[in-house]
């Protein structure tokens, strides 16, 4: 399963993290630091899988951002890569040409997208269209709730 998903930029600034296992705050920071320092040094043509301790680190770079999944146990590496790509496409569709600034100022929305794509480290929805509809519906509910129109 996917143990964690990280989104960091080239300078190592964390833009989004989700941990699906019990890990202390300190441990998370340590792991993040170690992984980022390894990945940012790798050339673009290299293989996107890195064996690290007892895990596999599977990552992909989009512009200045690295999308990273830490995987343990048996997983199809190529499928995980595809899932990461699917997540990026979902972000792109939701924000409309997503860029790093979108993710900085609207990080909570990026999390909403993430939680529709992955649940508990498992891929949840593979259709971008289905997801868009569900996110929109929730957005409307948020707005309505903020306006005090409906409760629940």
């Amino acid at each position: 399963m996917i143990e964690f998903i990280l989104l960091v930029n080239r300078q190592g600034k964390v833009r989004l993290t989700r941990w699906y296992t019990t890990t202390s705050q300190k441990e998370r920071a340590k792991i993040t630091r170690q992984i980022v320092s390894q990945i940012t040094h790798r050339g673009s043509k290299l293989c996107n899988v890195l064996e690290w301790q007892d895990k596999k680190i599977i990552y992909r770079k989009y512009a200045s951002l690295y999308f990273i999944a830490g995987v343990s146990g048996y997983e199809n590496e190529l499928s995980i890569l595809e899932a990461l790509h699917h997540f990026v496409e979902s972000l792109d569709k939701y924000f409309g040409n997503v860029c790093e600034l979108d993710l900085i100022y609207n990080f909570h929305k990026a999390y909403f997208v993430l939680d529709e794509v992955f649940l508990g480290g498992v891929l949840l929805e593979t259709s971008a269209n289905v997801m868009e509809k569900k996110l929109e519906a929730q957005e409307r509910m948020m707005d309505a709730a903020k306006a005090g129109l409906i409760d629940s």
Binding site: Y111, F112, Q138
Partner: peptide, 21 residues
């Protein structure tokens, strides 16, 4: 809270700030 907006942020905060310990 009953409001969906608050609930959503609450759950989001919970998932980020907590771990099961």
């Amino acid at each position: 809270r009953p409001s969906f907006a608050e609930k959503r942020i609450g759950y989001l905060g919970l998932m980020s700030l907590l771990d099961e310990k």
